[in-house]
Nucleic acid binder design. Sequence first.
DNA 1: TATTATTTTTAGACGAATCTAATTTATATA
DNA 2: TATATAAATTAGATTCGTCTAAAAATAATA
Lengths: 218, 218
Amino acid sequence: MTSSEENYLKTIYHLGAMNSGSVLTSQIADRMNTTSASVTDMIKRLSEKNLLDYERYRGVKMTRKGEKMALGVIRRHRLWEVFLTDILNFKWDEVHVLAEELEHVSSDELISRLDTYLGHPRFDPHGDPIPDQSGKLVQASGILLSEMEVGSGVILSGVNDHTSAFLRFLEKKGLKPGVKFTVLERDEFDSSLLIRFTDGNTTFLSHQAAQQILIRHD
Amino acid sequence: MTSSEENYLKTIYHLGAMNSGSVLTSQIADRMNTTSASVTDMIKRLSEKNLLDYERYRGVKMTRKGEKMALGVIRRHRLWEVFLTDILNFKWDEVHVLAEELEHVSSDELISRLDTYLGHPRFDPHGDPIPDQSGKLVQASGILLSEMEVGSGVILSGVNDHTSAFLRFLEKKGLKPGVKFTVLERDEFDSSLLIRFTDGNTTFLSHQAAQQILIRHD
DNA sequence: TATTATTTTTAGACGAATCTAATTTATATA
DNA sequence: TATATAAATTAGATTCGTCTAAAAATAATA
């Protein structure tokens, strides 16, 4: 497997995991900042290897085999992210790019030892679940902070927007996976939220921001 | 810089560091298990980038710039080797292959943090010195165990043969960088050595083995 | 020094991954 | 249903890294 092939599989997995239908050539091209022509080429290569089911002009689905490979790459990516934040003290908005490179170093033994060393973490620094060796993946919470009723105590469990800008925004607010807080108020006009942390501090969150934040009940 | 370019630079550095003359196409091809034709191609690319001085039919020398790049790769390689042995508990004969991959993840920030985390190690698990950020490299001892007079107390400081087979051989004998011992006897017939460790245990070493072991005086 | 042997380079080809531009197919609209 | 629009594919080119086989240059030997 080349790095390029792995990147395609990962992207197609991410696109296909949500809607369980077919992933279109253009969706892949968009996400990867490349051309549809390049995607078509790669799609063919990957179907040759039975990693994708491909019907011309109809997009692709992942095969069981392709999904396993994709989950392997995602596992490596997320474990390296944990290493980079927890051990090397990188900020959570800095680790993605580095993990994109490290994820392609493919030694099962290396990843297994890294996993052990990190204490078998179940989530990466952004709250995304880490697949286990066999490719099993716990489902992340799908509850949006923006949907919570006033008064509820919650724990931040993940984010939908993984951009550096959004992650730095959360950092500044003191928000990251594991942080507990209570929803105090929802503004009638713009649906912005006032939340209170366990230490008593409060902060505002726009509806736009709250829609990118996943929570579980405390 | 591609991984391939980095591998060529590293190899050429290793070949050229000993004899300070020119490195020949065939030497590079031999070391990298490739053809002279491929080497010629790459040599041209690297001289285009001013990393090598190249004269047709005369071999190459490294430029200052090329040497710096090579030392960067070597630094990354050796730091990852320390990480793999000291943190992930790999054996020293297993780390080379993995470090060959990790060395191409080129982020100065990553390497700087890794270096700090590891405590700024000055030598890798095989006793080879680790270049600093600026590319400075302390000279490794050049004293061969096979040349030592009987009675001398020494510390193993490195090896010339980095093959897995030789490293496992040393492992079995209890020999690795930092280990102290005394040369008790040299056999008149085959020049094999009898050595004694600080715990009193003794072992034999063939002349062939002793020629691959670098030491410094205790 | 002339010839032979060795080394190095060029010529030409290939696979992977990419691109632009042109063509084909499918979808949406009148 | 016929046509216009959008999407996907093919055709053809490019770069990187590699190869084999042939040609050129250097080194060794008679």
